[in-house]
Design a protein around this nucleic acid. Structure first.
Lengths: 123, 123
DNA sequence: GCAAACTACATTGCAATGCAAGATAGAACG
DNA sequence: CGTTCTATCTTGCATTGCAATGTAGTTTGC
């Protein structure tokens, strides 16, 4: 279920993308991420991340009443947030290409030629 | 060039993939990664990671002489390392699918209906 | 009314990991 | 000898996902 280390750096961008689509709040974001196949992302991950986005000026928030529970804190992207999102997409594509290049050759398992002889040495 | 946070968790798997293709050593791995589009990965990243792989039984190493410089420490995957690599590939694919799902809808910028009624959920 | 369940947000402290900076050392070349 | 390229390693730091925990409003059932 997607190891946490692999989410580092990616999750922030993904949450920017979620917010960028439509104004939304933490609890809903966590449901969205699950829907998209990220698995259950802990609340202890999401809320601090949202606060960080706000603190860094990438998102801004307003409280609104809910008819079904406590107040919700709705986030939307700032201009800086949209730039950051665009940057994330570029970076993610770059990583994705690199990994795909590599794994593609890994599949077949024998693309590189055999190398020179052994000259063993202790380890 | 690919922010460091985004490499977390992914880099280890990629290095497993590089080693899995053919026995190789740290310095060459760094050149391979650059060739594949990962950018320059610091040596302070690669060598500790290789030591960790060895310590965790995912790779094993032998020293060999080089004709052009100091000794090289060649790594190859253990059986456990190959399993770990296979696991990484599965996890990476899962993440990749999730992000692609999300970004795909982000592109057009207006895939979600302007709702405020529930009727919720994904498209 | 009261307990449970769901919604909703937040904080604390920890663990994993990429990286900068710096050290060490062999080989080749002018 | 000094510089450059090859090659490995260590220390300490910053970032960030997450478990654990706390708070609080709303709804439902007894």
């Amino acid at each position: 279920m997607i190891p946490s280390q692999m989410l580092k750096g990616t999750l922030e961008g993904c949450i920017l993308a979620v917010i960028g689509r439509k104004e939304t709040y933490g609890y809903e974001i966590s449901q969205q991420l699950e829907y998209y196949g990220f698995g259950k992302i802990a609340e202890g991950t999401i809320y601090p991340l949202l606060l960080r986005l706000e603190k860094n000026g990438l998102a801004e928030a307003v409280y609104r009443q809910s008819e079904v529970g406590p107040q919700r804190k709705y986030y939307r992207l700032t201009a800086a947030g949209e730039q950051e999102l665009a940057l994330f997409v570029r970076n993610y594509r770059a990583l994705s290409r690199a990994v795909d290049n590599l794994l593609q050759e890994t599949k077949g398992d024998a693309v590189y030629e055999p190398q020179d002889k052994e000259t063993v040495a202790g380890k």
